[in-house]
Amino acid sequence: MSPRRHSVTVTEPVGTDPLWCEEYGYGLGRTDGILVLKYRSAAVLEFGESRQDFLHQLYWSPDGMLSTGHGARTQFVGHREAFWAHRAVTHEVRAADRQTVYRVCLREVPAALGGMRAGAVSVDQEAARLIQAIARPACDEAEALAARARIMAGLGASTADFVGHHATGTGFALTVARALSHDPGDEAGLAEWAERLHVSVKTLQRDFEREFGMPYSKVRTKLRLSTSRVLLESQAVAEVAHRVGYSSPSAFITAFTKEYGCTPGRYAERESRANG
């Protein structure tokens, strides 16, 4: 971070470049400072082989899945989570088209994330709201630094943190949804999840209706299709279908077309053109 106290930079698309980047910095150069980079793009967003030796980084998207990786591990995270990378840890992050991604840079490690090198972390609703609130012009610096403290307090590394941050029901459905977002290809049905959690199928199904307003099968489908959008620009349709849990490419194509109004192949072609 530079020694400036407060900075705002907005980089707009130039020519055919589809990327927007807005930069908001508060208390820069100080231990308690925060830098938020807000990215928006009409095409796939990629942060490939990223490493920062001085700053810890948090990636969060309010409107889609992120594909994340460090070392040999690949993980997907949804809007109730973020991807944390400790400084000096090489990592990759990828988002689908028309997503907004916030990249939060910090000098301090949030208390709940001590000892964590990289991985998915939960973000409570207030922390998510404040990330968006301070990534805007004319935000007061004192207000932003107070928000920073609350953002750090609203992060959690464990499943218990995740459920505690978000559950309105028993928390069983959220536990399953978190696992599915990390691995959408998991083939377990509702009965198997109920057995794993030592609850009845009826209890788990009711919790899905309470938390999401829809049954388990629909939640799983939406997670799988949302994840597929992150993968299609770089992987073949058949490979993506298998990766997100479909038994055949044709089943995947049917579900994708019903959800998004075009085939995955057409979608991938469009994204390839948008990325030049």
Results as ranks from 00 to 15, higher is better:
143 E>V: 14
155 L>F: 06
227 T>L: 00
269 E>G: 09
75 Q>M: 15
109 V>W: 00
60 W>V: 02
162 F>G: 03
148 R>K: 08
105 C>A: 11
43 A>F: 04
1 M>F: 06
185 G>M: 03
70 H>R: 07
165 H>D: 05
89 V>I: 09
11 T>V: 13
82 A>E: 02
177 A>V: 07
187 E>H: 14
207 D>E: 11
89 V>G: 03
258 K>S: 05
258 K>P: 06
185 G>T: 07
220 R>W: 02
210 R>E: 12
257 T>P: 01
233 E>S: 12
168 T>R: 10
273 R>E: 13
268 A>V: 02
271 E>G: 07
91 H>V: 01
99 Q>H: 04
199 V>D: 09
142 A>S: 13
18 P>A: 05
193 W>R: 03
51 R>I: 11
208 F>N: 04
164 G>R: 06
102 Y>V: 03
11 T>S: 11
115 G>V: 02
79 H>Q: 13
254 T>D: 10
3 P>N: 07
135 A>H: 12
140 D>P: 15
223 L>W: 00
109 V>K: 02
164 G>F: 05
185 G>V: 00
192 E>N: 09
128 A>H: 05
96 A>F: 01
174 L>P: 00
70 H>Y: 11
232 L>G: 01
204 L>D: 11
161 D>S: 08
147 A>F: 10
266 R>T: 12
64 G>S: 08
58 L>F: 06
242 H>C: 08
46 E>M: 11
141 E>L: 07
167 A>G: 02
149 A>Q: 15
193 W>S: 11
78 G>P: 05
13 P>K: 10
197 L>A: 09
8 V>L: 08
268 A>T: 01
267 Y>V: 03
23 E>P: 05
259 E>S: 02
222 K>R: 14
41 S>Y: 04
214 M>K: 09
120 A>G: 10
62 P>M: 08
44 V>N: 07
197 L>D: 09
80 R>L: 08
40 R>Q: 08
221 T>V: 07
239 E>Q: 02
190 L>N: 05
136 R>D: 12
245 G>K: 00
210 R>T: 12
50 S>D: 06
253 I>S: 13
75 Q>C: 14
98 R>I: 03
5 R>P: 01
37 L>C: 14
86 H>F: 09
272 S>C: 13
274 A>E: 07
215 P>D: 06
32 D>G: 14
43 A>I: 05
153 A>M: 10
236 A>Y: 01
126 E>R: 15
6 H>K: 14
205 Q>S: 15
228 S>W: 00
158 S>H: 13
114 G>R: 13
232 L>I: 01
100 T>W: 03
42 A>I: 05
156 G>D: 07
248 S>A: 06
212 F>L: 10
92 E>W: 13
164 G>M: 06
93 V>C: 02
178 R>L: 00
21 C>W: 11
17 D>H: 09
167 A>C: 12
139 C>P: 01
191 A>M: 06
244 V>N: 00
121 V>F: 04
175 T>H: 04
198 H>D: 15
32 D>I: 10
228 S>R: 02
127 A>W: 12
